[in-house]
Design a protein around this nucleic acid. Structure first.
Length: 105
DNA sequence: TATATGACAGCAT
DNA sequence: CATGCTGCCATAT
């Protein structure tokens, strides 16, 4: 099956994104221990067939929708979770982003 | 061991 | 706001 230690860490991280919340590829990379591997995360999401992995909750930087095998479906899934999604971005992204950002000291 | 491949990010234009 | 380019990286060949 799937190889790649990083891959496993990415999948388990994505599995923890709560319903109605989103995270960027970069966020996942960081949480998975490789802050600059956002692009690699995208490659991993590309195969995302596992149903228990909410890959639709992984979007691009700044709240942009990002990629998906079928964008209309991605928008529908996000909307179904209560998010407001325009053709290109998730509205109110800062507040829907997961996990909560640490306040600066 | 080397090269190719992107559901990216950030900056420049 | 849209394009394009560079840096970065795990994976597959």
């Amino acid at each position: 099956m799937s190889e790649g230690r990083f891959r496993q860490r990415v999948l388990s991280t994505v599995r923890r994104i709560p319903i109605g919340r989103v995270a960027t590829y970069g966020d996942i990379a960081r949480l998975a221990g490789r802050p600059r591997a956002a692009r690699a995360v995208g490659n991993i999401m590309r195969d995302c067939r596992a149903r228990d992995v909410p890959c639709h909750r992984v979007i691009a930087a700044g709240g942009a929708i990002g990629g998906y095998s079928d964008l209309p479906v991605k928008r529908a899934l996000l909307r179904a979770e209560g998010l407001i999604v325009t053709s290109t971005r998730v509205k109110d992204f800062a507040r829907k982003r997961w996990p909560e950002r640490r306040k600066r000291r």
